[in-house]
Amino acid sequence: MINLFSLKQKQKEAADGTGGRVPVKKQSAGELRVQKDISELNLSKTTFISFPNGKDDLLNFEITIRPDEGYYMGGTFVFSFKISPIYPHEAPKVKCKTKVYHPNIDLEGNVCLNILREDWKPVLSINSIIYGLQYLFLDPNPDDPLNQEAADVLKDHPKQFESNVKRSMAVKNIRKFATY
């Protein structure tokens, strides 16, 4: 494999021509895979994507969802996606940047979606996560709450929940409705 005797010669040659070049940034496994995911995105008419750092940084982007049905109809919700260099081994880190009154999203923007954490598999893709997020707005799940108060209201007083959601989206002040 390595010819030890030719090494001496090679080293002499190498000694002549090694300059102080800048490190070359290699494409990480995550970048390669996310390129594929993004080029195949299938966004519905209620979902939008943007790249705050320009076209060459696909590891950080934002997804905007504007539900056209359900409790959250008419709202605009922005999620930041941060893809790890070892994606898809590790799930993307997703945060909700819009304050929202939702049983599965807390006021710091943490999102409780199984495929973002314990049920993530490398065969899933950015598309799967976007579907999951859209589903959260169509069918908020009070049984796995991150915002316990919102979940209790949804379970016990769905009408009240609906009006809380509407008011929260109108005044953008969710904390008022944190308790019922």
Partner: peptide, 11 residues
């Protein structure tokens, strides 16, 4: 990686 459901952590 070992991850726990956020809702379990929270509730």
């Amino acid at each position: 990686q070992v991850t726990y459901p956020l809702c379990t952590l929270a509730e």
